[in-house]
């Protein structure tokens, strides 16, 4: 994968956010912390890009402002922005985000992963693929794809 055909050799990079500070509320046993945008962002920020040794946060692919969470209605929506409009890795990045969320969020949530409107040439097709449960699980049956997805996610766990 690394030897040939990188599409965007020189992408723009961004400065990383600092770690979320632990509040006294979070340390208080009796308070229930709701699942919020920042929590979702923290799950995703360190996933690495399949092309670059940089995180999705550094490339501005995932931004906290593009995440919508409703803890009561059990919905999580993530809009991500590929670095260039014809990026062929877009589906793969979306898949990594989706897989990461499916593994680490409670099953009560309906997880939607979409490309930010207007940021990719084949936006609709990719969104459709990512929304299709069957296709997502079929993709993960493919050991090559699974390997790439896992490699992207594994760095976010260190």
């Amino acid at each position: 994968m690394t030897t040939k055909g990188i599409e965007n050799v020189n992408p723009q990079r961004f400065v990383k956010k600092t770690k979320r500070e632990v509040t006294t509320q979070e340390e208080d046993e009796s308070v229930k912390d709701p699942i919020d945008e920042r929590e979702i962002f923290d799950l995703l920020r360190d996933i690495s890009d399949p092309e670059h040794p940089m995180s999705l946060e550094e490339l501005n692919v995932v931004q906290i402002t593009n995440i919508e969470v409703d803890d009561h209605q059990n919905s999580v929506k993530v809009f991500y922005t590929p670095t260039i409009p014809h990026c062929s890795m877009a589906t793969l990045i979306g898949l990594s985000i989706k897989v990461c969320l499916l593994r680490s969020l409670p099953p009560r949530f309906k997880v939607e992963v979409n490309i930010s409107p207007g940021s990719h040439a084949s936006e609709e097709a990719v969104n459709k693929q990512l929304a299709d449960k069957e296709r997502v699980s079929a993709a993960l049956e493919n050991s090559n794809l699974l390997e790439v997805v896992n490699q992207c996610i594994v760095k976010s766990l260190e």
Binding site: E26, E39, N144, V148, V154
Partner: peptide, 30 residues
């Protein structure tokens, strides 16, 4: 799975890491 919905955020974070690590156990790329 129930730990992912713990009421405390700090616990949920650990649960997410643990569950992802165990999910990837034995899978390609890990």
């Amino acid at each position: 799975i129930p730990c992912l919905d713990d009421k405390k955020r700090l616990v949920r974070r650990e649960a997410a890491v643990a569950r992802q690590k165990w999910t990837m156990l034995g899978q390609a790329g890990c």
